[in-house]
Design a protein around this nucleic acid. Structure first.
Lengths: 201, 201
DNA sequence: CTCGATACTGAACGTTTGTTCAGTATTGTA
DNA sequence: TACAATACTGAACAAACGTTCAGTATCGAG
């Protein structure tokens, strides 16, 4: 409401927008505070006035993204009739929203540094657990609806997560339309497999 | 044959062994030359006498690993009768040999730095292409043997690669036996899918 | 207008890191 | 033994980076 508060909020947004765009382009480590300074016109000190640290800034972006993603998903949810349709819808949203997201690029970096028990690593473990829960519920829904077979839901949720994560890396640097097709095919495979005959153990 | 040459080779091995172990533990960036110095007892200069740079050292390890992997695979190959069996065998070897390997950890780091067109990034793109070729041949074999259905082999190879890559990240920090089960289940799913009814498009 | 709080500046700091190089030790050869 | 090639040392260098802080500008309340 204050002119001062408005300015402050605007600056905060300017910094986070620029930072997000840079993290997306270059990854976490490769993006320096100096880069953000150059992109915003703000000073180094000002960034540290608004955010606790580089990690804090990144963490803020992750949290923001987390919220937005769920919002979008819940907005689309009513348009899917079956769990199968939801699964294809899930793949599409992931490709469209997450494939070029800070997390997707920077997650790799943090996963490989086991020395630092940073808050970001913890955040990502939490998100992974949430993903598994999400997948489990989705699969359970399909089971209840008679679409999927009902054993070993836990394991299936894990494999689905693996597919989603793995495809994002395999598809890197490919055009969006192609990636969409690949993900769709991956879900196809997840649902029906590649074996020739009828289902067998 | 010379005492000098033998010493040199031994030193080279001592450095690369220590470096591999450190890269495995800490990842590429988190492992400093200083760490390797501390682990070997050699001097900094000596490391640079034997290896062109840190990247050169890592690249050497990658190459070495590449060779060993193929050797082991080809040694096991005769014991698999069908393409299906090979696929489960592939999953097992990957879990046992690669899951804690420098590449698996450090690949993540290099994939997220798009600024540097390092020789390592190129090497990894090459390896990815080789993997796809490998997968394609494996699937083709199964198709020829009547085990798998024969369409869209290219796409299936990509999904298989995605599953393998993705599962490695999803399974991180889990005990080996569990990881083996997860991979096995992933291959199960890849082959048969989770859908309830018979195959449908 | 005044004073305190808030917003912002940018030079300086400390640390880390990969790399170099002048110099020393060791070994093979003539 | 003498000399050159090879193997090795470690102090020094330079660049990059995140972070701090003393100081300045701007704004709102009293």
């Amino acid at each position: 409401m204050n002119k001062k508060q408005a300015q402050s909020e605007q600056t905060r947004k300017k910094i986070s927008d620029a930072a997000r765009s840079l993290f997306v382009q270059k990854g976490y480590k490769a993006t320096s505070i100096e880069d953000i300074v150059a992109a915003t016109g703000s000073s180094k000190g000002n960034i540290y006035y608004h955010f606790k640290s580089k990690e804090g800034l990144f963490s803020y972006l992750l949290h923001e993204w987390d919220r937005d993603w769920l919002e979008k998903w819940q907005a689309r949810l009513p348009s899917y009739a079956t769990a199968t349709a939801k699964m294809y819808g899930l793949a599409e949203q992931i490709v469209r929203e997450d494939l070029n997201h800070p997390l997707t690029r920077a997650a790799d970096e943090f996963f490989s540094n086991d020395e630092q028990k940073s808050e970001i690593e913890e955040k990502m473990n939490t998100m992974m657990q949430e993903h598994l829960l999400f997948n489990r519920q989705l699969i359970q829904e399909g089971v209840d609806g008679g679409e999927f077979s009902g054993e070993q839901i836990e394991q299936k949720a894990l494999v689905l997560e693996g597919i989603i994560v793995g495809m994002s890396r395999v598809c890197r640097n490919q055009p969006l339309e192609q990636v969409l097709k690949h993900y769709q095919f991956a879900i196809d495979t997840f649902l029906h497999g590649i074996a020739a005959g009828p289902q067998q153990s």
